[in-house]
């Protein structure tokens, strides 16, 4: 291996060797170790089949959904520094974010468009998984996990929709949660549990806020981890199984 003095000095230094258990990744062994000895890279196997990387197979939609989730966490945490989930202060804090917080409007834009994008991309991902028949054995349960992810994604988006506390969000949530009250028997009770009262108010706002910034993102993180772990355990993408010359 033709390594420069610099690289050699770097990869043999005590600091490097305490951080990484592999040398400079320019050879098969170290490239393998780069993956197997790193918790983040360990989502992937050391080598993946070329077929599963084909763009026209997956369109990268699952990866894009994961990226959008990351963008949402990042911009969402920034918004949390300013947003106050109270009926009196929610709307003024939105105005403040837009008018006086540096890049506030831009951060809010990114959060909102990424949220719409994530709902759309997750639906498209499901459509692609269905039409490629990737739910078939042994991936049945990962499909079921996916359906749960779809529901969580819709829930996260819907609960976030209320937070600006403007006319748009107030009436959209009123219309949306009215649907719950049509469940036979338990309907009105279900709506009351959802809203924390009989109509959209402070109790609703704090419920939706808690779901939106804690419960649903954490559940998503957990279940997405399970989903990605299972993709690997199921032998990578279903495209890998297609015999050469087909598909």
């Amino acid at each position: 291996m033709a390594q420069s003095k610099l690289v050699k000095g770097l990869t043999h230094s005590r600091v490097w060797r305490s951080l990484f258990r592999h040398g400079w990744p320019d050879n098969p062994l170290d490239r393998s170790l780069t993956m197997t000895s790193n918790i983040f890279f360990h989502l992937h196997p050391v080598k993946v089949s070329r077929k599963s990387l084909r763009w026209q197979y997956s369109f990268g939609l699952g990866v894009v959904a994961t990226i959008l989730y990351g963008v949402l966490i990042f911009t969402g945490v920034l918004l949390m520094f300013y947003y106050v989930p109270s009926v009196e202060r929610a709307y003024p804090s939105m105005k403040e974010i837009q008018l006086s917080v540096p890049l506030g409007q831009f951060t809010r834009n990114m959060h909102r468009w990424a949220a719409h994008g994530m709902v759309l991309v997750v639906i498209l991902h499901m459509v692609r998984v269905f039409y490629t028949g990737a739910y078939k054995p042994p991936r049945q349960f990962n499909w079921v996990i996916g359906v749960i992810l779809l529901l969580f994604t819709l829930g996260a988006s819907f609960t976030g929709y209320l937070l600006p506390w403007d006319q748009l969000s107030f009436w959209a949530i009123t219309v949306g949660t009215n649907i719950a009250s049509y469940a036979p028997g338990a309907g009105p009770v279900m709506r009351e549990i959802l809203l924390g009262g009989t109509e959209v108010g402070q109790d609703t706002l704090i419920r939706f806020y808690t779901l939106h910034i804690a419960l649903l993102p954490l559940s998503l993180a957990l279940v997405v981890s399970l989903h990605l772990w299972r993709v690997r355990k199921d032998g990578g993408l279903a495209a890998t199984e297609v015999p050469d010359g087909e598909g």
Binding site: Y91, K95, H111, D166, Q167, L168, S169, F170
Partner: peptide, 19 residues
């Protein structure tokens, strides 16, 4: 990103649409 007038339970928007 849109921001409408502050929420007012007395005045219904028309139309009131879900997301």
């Amino acid at each position: 990103a849109p921001l409408d007038a502050i929420a007012n339970p007395q005045i219904t928007t028309d139309p009131a649409k879900a997301p």
